[in-house]
Design a protein around this nucleic acid. Structure first.
Lengths: 288, 288
DNA sequence: CAATCATATTTATTATGATAATTATTCGAT
DNA sequence: ATCGAATAATTATCATAATAAATATGATTG
């Protein structure tokens, strides 16, 4: 009886697949808009809740963005990097990832990244790289500034990644950089070595020079040296895991839950833990 | 007035974040169960539809799995590889990725992957690798069998990845392999070179031998050679892009949509295209 | 007593309609 | 012409009920 569409048993998921097929077939491209909610109800013959769930799925996957208001609705989007990174971070959250592993990857990828970027370096790229170095060059004025400089150090590599035409390599390097940026943010209060910053500036300057001369081989060698040096610094500073899910808001938890009251969440200053019902225990049945 | 929780405007997303915080804080771990739907309504003070959307979001992200029936509900899950790969594939769909780019990455990563795996190779691993080679060794009996052998060639590398303790490297290599497997599947009908399969078997045998002797350096060198050789073969065979969103079902489209009828979708044998309302056009309003 | 089928119960999913919130557009006043 | 308020279009949320799925339980039968 239920065999008409045995594929994915949930109708909403089938709708998601169908829309994906539209995208694959080229019927809709980024920037195009899906029919509005009411029309989707008719087209798919599903209820509002189901359609809404399907749209939510597409939104979470980064394939559409939703807007309210007139002319609102679902717009097809090229999946943005941030969204993909978030989902990747979800994956790594449950696995043991440490800085050594990330640097092992960077050691393999970054040299090739810069070498492959050389033919595509523009004057604009060189300007951006120089600006990045300039930001990191002066001695840090306070710990917050030092952290900003560390983040900018990593941004230097992002700029390089942009210049490399290999989309996969680019994504991987940027993802690694983003992981490191977040580990820097999480490391507030950790003592940062001023010598580390200076070493980065020196290394980046050398790399920039090689880029100006369009010397891919030298750029690759310098980058390898740079990563190995940075790896050494970072390993000495701190070796802890970096484990976090990506939240939209980085700030402290804001919602204190009132487990039974059916009243709006309110701001909390001290604790966020509204631990869920311990699995296995039974709560008292609520009255009908 | 709406400033109590100005973070992410949508309350459903706030609920998702809150549950992520539970996970981060260690209040819930994979295998634990979330309170059932009715309880979540009370806990968060939200309506059913909103809670349902939030759970859908978590499900799409791979953080929970949903089950029906008594004792059903949402179970926290370690995000599985397949889910993450799907989302990664969404990202690359909108970007120009070709086989050359993937092989450039493999050339960098696979040698290190096998070298790093050497200390962790068990007898069981060796057995699995040998079985994989044995499957690919005999001459292919028909084109379907040849494709299966190509997929198994890649599985050889997956087995190696399993033995490497670097989770990030592992993920990247497996993702690359999975992309190639899919490109093989998409390439039905393409002429496959029997010599390619034989060369793979030879290379895999050599690598296996180095692994038995726990010779990381030789394994690395052999792998590099192997990837370069494979890259050559593949480049000559076909250079097309591999572009596809990952669908739950790989089969042909099954749902023909009845745009206005508000009747259940039914199986279609010929065509899937129910192109969405061209953006901008107006459909006739449906009767209330 | 064991196995099997029917039935009840719990939960998930779908369905429908109403209300609130959000935003582009339009119109009016300065 | 510019700014701002009213308006209209559309999604977001809420509420409730009906339907379907899954499992445990108990009756029935060999």
């Amino acid at each position: 009886m239920r065999e008409t569409t045995s594929r994915s048993r949930k109708v909403g998921d089938q709708m998601v697949e169908q829309i994906k097929r539209w995208i694959i077939a080229g019927h809709v491209k980024p920037g195009d808009r899906l029919p509005k909610e009411a029309e989707l109800l008719d087209i798919f013959g599903l209820s509002k809740g189901t359609v809404r769930e399907a749209l939510k799925s597409l939104e979470v996957q980064g394939l559409v963005t939703m807007r309210t208001g007139p002319d609102g609705g679902a717009t097809i989007a090229a999946v943005p990097f941030d969204r993909t990174f978030q989902l990747l971070q979800n994956f790594f959250f449950f696995r043991e990832v440490d800085l050594a592993q990330i640097y092992e990857l960077r050691r393999l990828l970054e040299p090739e990244l810069v070498a492959g970027a050389v033919p595509h370096i523009t004057e604009e790229t060189l300007r951006l790289l120089e600006a990045s170095i300039d930001f990191c060059a002066p001695a840090a004025q306070g710990p917050a500034h030092a952290l900003d400089q560390r983040a900018e150090d990593l941004h230097f590599h992002d700029i390089l990644a942009e210049a490399n035409p290999n989309e996969v390599l680019r994504f991987m390097c940027q993802a690694l950089n983003e992981m490191l940026v977040r580990s820097v943010r999480l490391a507030r209060g950790v003592q940062h070595d001023a010598a580390f910053g200076r070493a980065n500036v020196v290394a980046h300057r050398k790399i920039l020079e090689a880029l100006r001369e369009r010397d891919a081989t030298r750029a690759r060698a310098l980058m390898l040296e740079h990563i190995i040096e940075a790896e050494d610094y970072v390993k000495r500073l701190r070796g802890e895991y970096l484990r976090s899910l990506v939240l939209e808001s980085d700030g402290p938890p804001t919602i204190a839950l009132t487990p039974a009251g059916r009243q709006k969440a309110k701001t909390a200053t001290e604790a966020d833990d509204a631990p869920p019902a311990p699995s296995g225990t039974r709560r008292k049945p609520r009255p009908t």
